[in-house]
Amino acid sequence: MEYSPPPLFKQGASARVKMTVFACISIVLLLVDSQMRTLGTVRQVVGTVLHPLQMVALLPRDAIYGAGDYFSSLAEMKKQVDELKRQQIADAQALQQAQLRTAENNQLRRLMGAREQVPTKSMLAEVLYDARDASSRKIILNRGSNSDVSLGLPVIDNQGVVGQVTRVFPFTSEVTLLTDKDQAIPVQLLRNGLRSVAYGRGKIGSLELRFTAPNADIKVGDIVVTSGLDGIYPAGLAVARVTQVDSNANGAFGGVICQPLAGIQNNRQLLILMSPPEIAPRPPDEEPRVPRKGNNRMAPIKDPAKEEAPAAGAASAAAGSELIPKAPAAATPATTPVTGTPAVSTPAVTTPAARTPTAATPATVPANRAPATGAPAATPTKEPAR
């Protein structure tokens, strides 16, 4: 039995010979293809036939690359989403700041317009925070005594009156709002000039016109402005709008509710009126009259026509008294002096209208006539002529 090696291990031509043959074939094909362009169709046919095999062979590689790309793109997309979210938050904050700045600029522009219309000097202030007392309606401004802020100065915005400075510190000041329950301001209706006083209603946030007559000419929608009678608020500043009128015919007063026009709880910038309005000086006080001693009662008014009649009667009575001797001051009867000279009575003073008795006509009194005082009748005496 003849032994022969398996076909795999059979050796034909040497490897050197094979390499030389295949190299020559390759060179020939290259020359033929470069010169005659005859192998292009063969390459296309072979490439078309082998393409599915190439795709199948590349499937594992493509699957590995696809998985890597998927996970890397997922991480990249997550990173981009986080970055976009942060950018969105930053843009929203910037938008809010821009809107706030725009609102502040608009408010400042309106305040500057109101500042030009107000006749007095004013200063811009910013609200820092609300007061700590929850039961009151007060705010704190960033202006104090170092900025020449004093007590009682009014505070306004572009729409109307906000309140009044009630406390002053070196760098801040406290403002009591119009709606505070302890705040009052003299006002008048813009439509008919009816004067009244507006009182705050506390946490309700509105004003009330107290002590108004039930039949007062007040309508819903009327504008209430400052009257300027207190010497603090300039006249003509808008205060509130009438929202409710309660005319109670049975009561002595009617109820009027108003809503403030100013942005009391909205704005951050306000105006402080630095100088009060100019008021005409008061007239000088009259000097007190010093009453005379013993003349505490009022003197009656004298009528000249009525005074002439008693004067004429007194004159005629005085004229008749010269003809009648006077009674003695006491009850002692009249006697003559020791020397024997008859007693002479002093004649009564008469007015020029009375008639003077002549020397030849002695005045005699009947013996049976007694004095008016109840004294015994005296012996009639003869009055010598003057």
Rank of each mutant, 00 (worst) to 15 (best):
P5L: 10
P6H: 11
L8G: 07
R16V: 13
V17Y: 13
V21D: 04
C24V: 15
I27T: 15
V32P: 02
D33K: 00
T41A: 08
R43Y: 11
G47K: 09
P52A: 08
P52M: 10
L53R: 09
R61W: 10
A67F: 13
A75F: 07
K79A: 14
V81R: 06
Q87G: 14
A90L: 09
Q93K: 13
L100S: 11
N105C: 15
L108G: 00
R110K: 09
L111D: 07
K121Y: 13
A131S: 07
N142D: 09
N146P: 08
S150R: 15
L153D: 06
N158E: 11
V162M: 04
V165A: 07
T176W: 01
L178I: 03
A184N: 02
P186L: 03
A198W: 00
G202R: 01
G202Q: 01
K203A: 04
I204A: 14
I204G: 12
G205L: 02
L207N: 01
T212M: 06
P214D: 02
V220D: 03
G221V: 00
G228F: 05
L229S: 02
G236I: 01
R241V: 04
T243Q: 06
P260S: 11
A262S: 03
N266C: 03
L270I: 12
S275A: 15
P277G: 06
P277M: 01
P281M: 04
P288H: 02
M298F: 14
E307V: 11
G313A: 14
A314F: 14
A315Q: 07
S316D: 09
G320H: 10
A331K: 12
A331E: 15
A343G: 08
T356S: 10
T356G: 12
R369P: 03
P371W: 05
K382G: 02
P384R: 00
